[in-house]
Design a protein around this nucleic acid. Sequence first.
DNA 1: TCGTGATCATGT
DNA 2: ACATGATCACGA
Length: 222
Amino acid sequence: MTSPSNQEQLMRRCHALAGFTLGQLAAQIGCKVPANLKREKGWTGQLIEQALGASAGSKAEPDFPELGIELKTLPISRLGKPLESTYVCIAPLIGITHQSWNESWVCQKLSHVLWLPILAERDIPIAERVIGTGFLWQPNHEEQQLLQQDWEELMELIALGGIDRIRGAHGHVLQLRPKAANSHALTSAVGTHGEPIQTLPRGFYLKTSFTQRLLAKAFNSN
DNA sequence: TCGTGATCATGT
DNA sequence: ACATGATCACGA
C-alpha cells in the first residue's frame, strides 16, 4: 500500500476498514493471523499500518510523516472502554535539563493522532476482532494542560534523580512505566545525588481514563 | 541498545 | 476488576 497523499485519503482508507475483522483484513493483505498475541504483541498495529500505507519501520517519526499524523490502534471492550493504556514514546532520562513541553516527544507525538478502536476483548479470537471507526484527534487546551502538567512533573523527577521513586500511579493522564525487553534491561539515568546510574528504561503511556474521554468525545457516548 | 508496534499477567 | 510492572518481536 502506498502512503496516503493527504489527510482525506487517509481517512477514506481508514473508514473503509470499519466493520471488517482483523481476519478479513489479514486475508486481503495476505498475512497470517497468530493464534494469540503473546509473542506478537504489536501485530494488530502493524497490520493496520500496512493497510493504511504507513511508512513501516521503527523510525522515530510519525507514521505518516508528510501528514504529521500518528496512528494508534486502541483496544476496546464490548462496552467501548479502552482495555489497555496507550504507549506514547520512550522517556529520555539524561540530558533533559532544558527541554520544554512543546519540544518534547510526547507533545509532538500527540499533536495529531489517528485513533482506531479495535473491539479486542480477550475472549474474542484475534481473527474475529472487529475494526471500529477511526477518528482524528488534536489535544484541546484542557487536554494539552493535563498532559503538560504530568509531563513536567515527571520530567522534573527524572532530572532531579527521582526516577526510581516514580511508579505508574504518578501522573493523572500520563504515566511513566517500564518499556524494555525485560526487567533486567538497563539504560543510563540520574541518581538521587546527581550521579550517573543504570536503571530500567521507561516509556510514557496514556492512562485508559484519558483515552476513554477521547472516545466519549468522538462518539458522544459513555 | 534504542525505538517502533503493543499486550501479558500478576498483585491488589 | 483493574492498573502496574513485565514482557515479546523486529529493524537499525
